[in-house]
Design a protein around this nucleic acid. Structure first.
Lengths: 207, 207
DNA sequence: GTCTATACACTGATAGAC
DNA sequence: GTCTATCAGTGTATAGAC
């Protein structure tokens, strides 16, 4: 039970992460963060000096973690179709648990596109070259004639787009298709795991 | 040449549309809008009273227009495959010209989900029931055995997601895949018009 | 480390002259 | 209708006591 009570710095970080990812940089309020964390506003500045530094700490961490997760999912050693099934399932599961993260990252990168450069230096994405490896597998399958010709980049974007879009566009789907019925929306997301994989595999499989 | 000089109210509206769609409600500054419009800050309030009213006017208009456009594209009387090709092409073209709109709408709906309800009352989407008609066409093709069974909703979301995602995620693609090469990114978007249609049709066509 | 009180800057909004 | 000047409110940040 020693660690049940988090120390203040961690508590601030966790709370700020919530607020920033929900509201974005401009929409977030230091007052709001301090209240949710059950502490005083001045303490935020004591630990992180400025709103921007606090935000940066969170953004770097969230973005790095998100990409590492996504990339590592792509690296399984299964054959292509199985790989796709595994990735889609794991990816949708991951984002469902962190539904604000994609928008959070996109919005911040729109405000400040140079951010990507900095982060990539400290992330194993480039070194591992998971995209490259995936592309190779795709090329091999094309040569073998098991799938239709397709540029690996197009395929990767299709897979990610199909997985991600219903979560990014949640408020629209909720309003239009599901009439604010949370349960139906969640069932739909769950159904996407198989649906997307099936759709992608159908699209590329040579019959 | 009589209309080259827009009247002030229109000028404000157009400029505010730019700023709000780029920066979002929280990030937008009345001062910024007035300066870009080449007028005084007080004039904004003279015409629109408050920031929120100005924003609402723009949001309602942008959202309404965007959905009407999207829906009308879905309503062509072509056979299904041709319909998909036409829609994807027109849709990607539309968003390419207004790349900030999707994020703008999604962010605002996250801040204020009830907005959808209001807007739908004054938009011909529900009446025309374009989604419903599209769904019928899909069902017919399934019965005829020309395409694999698929829920129409899943198909629609796949089509929109595949078209929209590369534009929503532009800063990520630009940073990772295209190394900030605008030309390459635009070429990629252009290639998506055929790629997405082909991918979708391959996925559902029964062979 | 944590709090209260407060300084300081910014932004939305209004008053009033022209 | 359009401007300048200014107010009031809010949000970030700091000073200083405990």
């Amino acid at each position: 039970m020693t660690q049940l009570e988090k120390n203040t710095e961690e508590k601030i970080f966790e709370t700020a992460k919530e607020v920033f990812t929900e509201k974005g940089y401009e929409g977030a309020r230091m007052e709001d963060i301090s209240q949710r964390a059950g502490i005083n506003k001045a303490l935020l500045h004591y630990y992180y000096r400025t709103k921007e530094k606090l935000f940066n700490a969170i953004f770097d961490m969230v973005m790095g973690e998100f990409f590492e997760n996504a990339i590592s999912m792509m690296g399984s050693e299964a054959p292509l179709f199985k790989k796709i099934e595994l990735f889609v399932d794991a990816y949708i599961t991951l984002i469902s648990k962190n539904p604000h993260i994609p928008n959070f990252i996109i919005n911040e990168l729109n405000r400040n596109p140079e951010r990507l450069v900095t982060i990539f230096k400290s992330t194993p994405i480039v070194k591992n070259n998971a995209f490259g490896k995936f592309a190779e597998v795709v090329q091999e399958e094309i040569k073998k004639g098991t799938i239709e010709p397709i540029e690996p980049i197009q395929l990767i974007i299709n897979i990610i787009g199909l997985s991600l879009f219903p979560i990014i566009a949640k408020p629209i789907l909720m309003g239009i298709l599901f009439k604010n019925d949370k349960k139906k929306y969640n069932e739909f997301l769950e159904s996407r795991k198989k649906e997307v994989a099936k759709f992608v595999i159908n699209a590329i499989r040579k019959k």
